[in-house]
C-alpha cells in the first residue's frame, strides 16, 4: 500500500544525511568562488585580530587579560563562531523563507521545520572565520603557561563546541523572533553579532549592567572568556568570576533548550495556535 508500513522505512538520520550530502556536493562544484569567499572571511577575521594587536600595542593588560590570554579568548571565540556559522548559519535566511512562503512548504513535509532549515544548507565557506580562530588558538595554547589538569584539558576541548552551541542557540532565538516581528532581521542580528564581538573580550571590559547581561540572558561570556579564565586560573571580575567557566557546557545546553522552546513558541504563533 502506501507509505504507512513502517517495516520498510529508511531511518530519519539517513534522510537528513542525504539532504546534507546533496548540498555539500553542489557547493564543492563552485570551487573558485568558494576559495574566494573563504579568503574574504579569513581576511575579515584578520581585521578583528588586528584589533586585538592594536589594543595590546597600547596597553599590556586589557580587563584582566594580557596579550597571550587575549589571543586565547579570541581564538576560542572565533573558532566556535566559525563552527556555528557553518552549521547553523542558514537560520539567517528565515526572514526570506517567511516572506517567500517557503516556510509553508516546509510545514507540509514530514520533518520538523527547524531541522529542515538547518540542514537546508551547510555552507563550508562560512567556516572561513573559524580558520583564523584555530590558528590563533594553537598559537595561544603554546604561548600560555597553563597548569594542565585533566579537568582543564577537558574544558578546553569542549569549549569550541559549547561556544558553537551557544552561538547556534542565539541564531535560533533570533530566527524564532522573526515569527513575531516583521522585517526584524537586522535588529536580531545586532544581538547575535554584538554577542560575537563581546565574546572576544574579557568580561571585565564591560560595565556591570552589560556584564550581567553577557553572563545571563545573552551568555556571550561563556563562549570564550569564562572557560578561558577557568583554564588559566583567573579570578575574574565581579559578577563574572572565572569559576563560572566550569559551568560552560551546562550553560550551552540550557541555552539550546531555551532557544528551542522559543522556536516552538514561534512556530505555534506562525501557525496561529498562539492566537
Amino acid at each position: 500500500m502506501d507509505a504507512s508500513c513502517s517495516g520498510d522505512r529508511v531511518g530519519a538520520v539517513a534522510a537528513y544525511r542525504t539532504v546534507l550530502a546533496s548540498r555539500l556536493r553542489s557547493q564543492l562544484q563552485y570551487r573558485t568562488s568558494f576559495a574566494l569567499y573563504v579568503l574574504t572571511s579569513v581576511v575579515t577575521a584578520l581585521a578583528g585580530f588586528a584589533e586585538v594587536l592594536t589594543v595590546f600595542h597600547n596597553v599590556p593588560v586589557l580587563g584582566d587579560l594580557d596579550l597571550r590570554a587575549a589571543l586565547l579568548v579570541y581564538g576560542l571565540s572565533t573558532f566556535g563562531f566559525g563552527i556555528a556559522n557553518c552549521v547553523a548559519g542558514q537560520l539567517d535566511t528565515i526572514p526570506t523563507y517567511i516572506r517567500t512562503g517557503t516556510l509553508e512548504t516546509m510545514l507540509v513535509r514530514p520533518q520538523p521545520v527547524l531541522a529542515q532549515i538547518v540542514t537546508s544548507d551547510v555552507t563550508l565557506r562560512r567556516f572561513g572565520v573559524g580558520l583564523v580562530g584555530v590558528v590563533t588558538l594553537v598559537v595561544a595554547l603554546a604561548a600560555n603557561p597553563v597548569h594542565w589538569t585533566p579537568a582543564r584539558a577537558g574544558l578546553l576541548l569542549v569549549t569550541p563546541l559549547s561556544g558553537a552551541l551557544l552561538f547556534a542557540a542565539l541564531f535560533t532565538a533570533a530566527g524564532a523572533l522573526q515569527f513575531w516581528l516583521v522585517d526584524a532581521s537586522e535588529v536580531t542580528s545586532s544581538f547575535t553579532y554584538g554577542a560575537q564581538y563581546a565574546s572576544q573580550f574579557s568580561a571585565a571590559v564591560f560595565p556591570v549592567p552589560l556584564r550581567l547581561l553577557l553572563v545571563t540572558a545573552v551568555p556571550a561570556a561563556f563562549v570564550a572568556y569564562l572557560p578561558a579564565a577557568a583554564v588559566l586560573g583567573l579570578t575574574g571580575p565581579r559578577w563574572a568570576p572565572g569559576r563560572l567557566g566550569w559551568g560552560t557546557p551546562v550553560v550551552a545546553v540550557a541555552a539550546c533548550l531555551a532557544a528551542l522552546a522559543l522556536w516552538r513558541l514561534g512556530v505555534r504563533h506562525y501557525t496561529g495556535a498562539g492566537g
Partner: peptide, 23 residues
C-alpha cells in the same frame, strides 16, 4: 534595525575604549 545595531556596537566599542584607557 540599523539604529539598534549601531547603538549596540556603540556601547560595546565604547566599553573597550574606556577599558583600554583605564588600563
Amino acid at each position: 534595525g540599523g539604529a539598534v545595531t549601531n547603538s549596540v556596537f556603540g556601547l560595546l566599542r565604547a566599553s573597550v575604549l574606556v577599558a583600554t584607557i583605564r588600563s
